[in-house]
Amino acid sequence: MNLVGTILVYTGLLALLVGAISVLHPLRFLGIASRTFGLIVSLCGVALFLIAINLPASEERIALQRTHLDDFVPAYQFSEFHSIRINAPRQKVFRAIQEVSADEIFLFRTLTWVRRGGRSGPESILNAPSGKPLLDVALRTSFMKLAEEPDREIVLGTLVAAPQGTRLKKDPTPDDFKALHAPGFALAAMNFRLEYAANGETVLTTETRVSATDASVRKKFGAYWRVIYPGSALIRVMWLRAIRHRAELMPR
Rank of each mutant, 00 (worst) to 15 (best):
R116H: 10
Y196W: 00
L249M: 15
R226P: 04
P174Q: 03
K169R: 14
A162F: 13
A138S: 13
R119A: 14
G45R: 12
F143V: 06
H82G: 00
V114D: 02
K220S: 15
M144N: 07
I40F: 07
Q65D: 00
S124A: 08
E99P: 00
A147Q: 10
G131I: 08
A212T: 13
V93T: 04
L43E: 10
S130A: 13
S124I: 07
V210T: 15
A186L: 03
T110F: 07
E59H: 11
R218D: 11
A102E: 10
R116A: 10
L50E: 06
E149L: 14
L39Q: 12
P56L: 03
I51S: 06
P172A: 02
G117Y: 05
E195M: 09
L146I: 10
L43S: 12
T205I: 01
A147H: 07
F78K: 05
G231V: 03
Q98F: 00
G31V: 09
E80P: 02
L69P: 05
R140D: 09
N2K: 09
R140N: 04
R152A: 15
W239L: 14
N2S: 14
F49V: 11
A247C: 13
A179D: 09
P230G: 05
Q77C: 05
E195I: 00
R66G: 00
V46G: 12
Y76E: 09
V100Y: 01
L17V: 14
N2H: 10
L126E: 09
V237Q: 11
G200L: 05
I97V: 15
R246Y: 05
D136P: 00
R209Q: 06
A147M: 10
L135I: 11
L159A: 08
P251K: 15
A197M: 06
P230C: 04
L17G: 12
L107Q: 12
A33S: 13
F78I: 03
V100A: 04
I86Q: 02
Q65I: 07
A189L: 01
R28V: 07
L159W: 13
Y196P: 02
A57S: 13
A128H: 03
Q65A: 12
V227H: 01
D136I: 01
T173Y: 02
T67M: 00
T206I: 07
R209L: 01
L204I: 08
S120V: 10
G45D: 07
F94M: 08
L64M: 02
G131N: 05
F108D: 06
E153L: 07
W239S: 08
R152H: 14
L139D: 03
R115M: 10
G165I: 06
A189M: 01
M190I: 00
